[in-house]
Amino acid sequence: MTENQMLWTGRVLTVLFALFILGASVAPKLLGLPIAEETMRQLGWPSGYAFGIGVLELTLLALYLYPRTNVLGAVLFMGLLGGAMATQMRNGSPLFSHTLFSVYLGLVMWGGLWLRDAAVRQLFPVRRD
């Protein structure tokens, strides 16, 4: 894959990740949609946490999208995704569709960053031998 192809593939993955997080997670929480609080309640969270988590997700997404802080944003986002995965595990959610969904999101997030940022590729090289 050429450098240009990797850059554009990384950008596409990053945009898909950002749009998914914004549409499926941040917006319902910040807009106060009942589904956000209901989902949090079903997962064992007390009411009132959805808005704060939405603000946190939006902040981490901004850090991830800003080139100077993208690695910090990705690392912090993985912490949030790890917490989401632990919540799903504690709740006894299905493994592949719910519990591991945070891993899938993390792979898309880091894959997009790895493909679009040469410094990240140097930090995490793919060895061919």
Rank of each mutant, 00 (worst) to 15 (best):
E3Y: 00
N4F: 01
Q5Y: 00
M6K: 09
V12N: 11
V12C: 15
L16K: 08
F17G: 03
F20Y: 14
I21A: 12
S25C: 09
V26W: 08
A27Y: 08
P28G: 04
L30R: 00
L31K: 08
G32I: 09
A36I: 03
A36W: 00
E37F: 06
E37H: 07
E37C: 05
R41T: 13
R41C: 02
P46E: 03
S47E: 10
S47C: 04
A50C: 06
G52Q: 05
I53W: 11
V55D: 06
L56T: 10
T59N: 00
T59F: 06
L60A: 12
Y64K: 05
Y66P: 04
T69R: 00
T69Y: 00
L76A: 02
L76R: 01
L76F: 09
F77S: 08
M78V: 06
G79R: 06
L80I: 02
L80F: 12
L81V: 10
L81Q: 06
A86N: 09
A86V: 13
Q88K: 13
N91M: 04
S93N: 14
S93K: 09
S93T: 03
P94Q: 07
L95T: 13
F101W: 11
Y104H: 08
G106S: 13
L107I: 15
V108W: 05
M109I: 09
A118M: 06
A119V: 01
Q122S: 14
